[in-house]
């Protein structure tokens, strides 16, 4: 719980931060809200020579609705997302997800960009980001690239972000039916992370599912889109039998299930199926 020595930089512009990353390479870690990195430093699971604190880069802490796209700066805290009026109107799934992260202190410090980059397989954001078909913008000294949510999560604690990159923005296409969405989770009783979390965004017309996307976190080494469930729902009437049958496939994309002292793989699979059904039903009920 006592970290090793490191050099600390607190740049105020992205350019300055990227220069530091280029200079220090693999010896460098990026600090945003600190809620993932600081515990790792304290436990000496990481001992970077340099920490670049991007928390003072103001341009990374914004929420903008830009036509059909919602742009959230990577340094925006979970608490800011929870209470943002534009998001409540245009994409309440983001608010609902943010509100279920950790506790108030964590939400006040932790950031969406930091959480996504850390790629904890039990974090809440991945489920929502996948369900919203969002894009993550990463910048390096060489320029900017846009990564699809479905390509972003690589493995346990591994995202597509390169060591010389900083996540700058999360771009979320405005959902057609903002209210037809939900994030449900079974929290691990100690950490509050998701044993399983399911985010669903639907589009329903005349009782029929016109579109659906479902993100599942906690179950597998990386969060994933429950494509089999989505396929079984798309174009179908949202009735109990259809939803139940579809949700039974919620773990189909999970080749491996996580196992720890809090839950077995079997139980996680079971929870994913139950909660996929509940999520679709709840989202449909809100439509």
């Amino acid at each position: 719980m006592i970290p090793t020595n490191f050099d600390y930089f607190a740049p105020t512009t992205i350019e300055e931060a990227l220069k530091l990353l280029d200079k220090h390479g693999d010896d460098c870690k990026v600090l945003s809200g600190g809620h993932s990195l600081i515990p790792v430093l304290k436990l000496r699971l990481a001992a970077p020579a340099v920490v670049v604190d991007i928390g003072r880069i103001k341009e990374l802490r914004t929420i903008k609705v830009d036509g059909d796209t919602i742009r959230i700066g990577a340094n925006t805290t979970h608490a800011e997302i929870t209470s943002n009026a534009d998001l409540k109107k245009h994409c309440p799934l983001l608010c609902e997800t943010a509100a279920q992260i950790g506790d108030q202190q964590v939400r006040n410090r932790g950031t969406i960009g930091g959480s996504l980059t850390h790629a904890d397989p039990a974090a809440d954001w991945p489920a929502a980001i996948l369900a919203l078909d969002a894009e993550i913008v990463a910048r390096s000294g060489k320029g900017e690239r846009v990564i699809k949510a479905s390509d972003f999560f690589v493995d346990v604690m591994t995202s597509a972000v390169e060591p010389n990159e900083i996540v700058t923005e999360i771009r979320v296409p405005k959902p057609a039916q903002p209210n037809a969405a939900v994030y449900l989770k079974v929290p691990q009783s100690a950490s509050g992370f998701a044993i399983v979390g399911v985010a669903a965004q639907l589009k329903i017309a005349n009782g029929k599912c016109e579109d659906v996307s479902i993100g599942v976190t906690g179950l597998a080494p990386k969060a994933f889109r429950a494509a089999s469930v989505e396929a079984a729902l798309r174009g179908k009437a949202i009735d109990d039998a259809t939803v139940s049958a579809a949700a039974a496939k919620a773990d189909a994309e999970a080749a491996d299930a996580m196992e720890d002292i809090h839950a077995s793989g079997d139980y996680r699979r079971h929870l994913a199926r139950v909660y996929a059904r509940r999520a679709v039903q709840a989202a449909a009920a809100r439509a």
């Binding site: 436990l43 506790d103 009783s189 100690a190 950490s191 509050g192 992370f193 809090h262």
Partner: peptide, 29 residues
């Protein structure tokens, strides 16, 4: 009654060695 437990494995390693794994009660629970 509901969730708190110190867990050691068969080698005597404490598996609930931090608050990420040791479930003491929080107000919202």
């Amino acid at each position: 009654a509901l969730f708190e437990e110190a867990v050691y494995d068969e080698n005597g390693q404490l598996l609930t060695g931090e608050l990420m794994d040791y479930a003491f009660p929080k107000a919202h629970q």
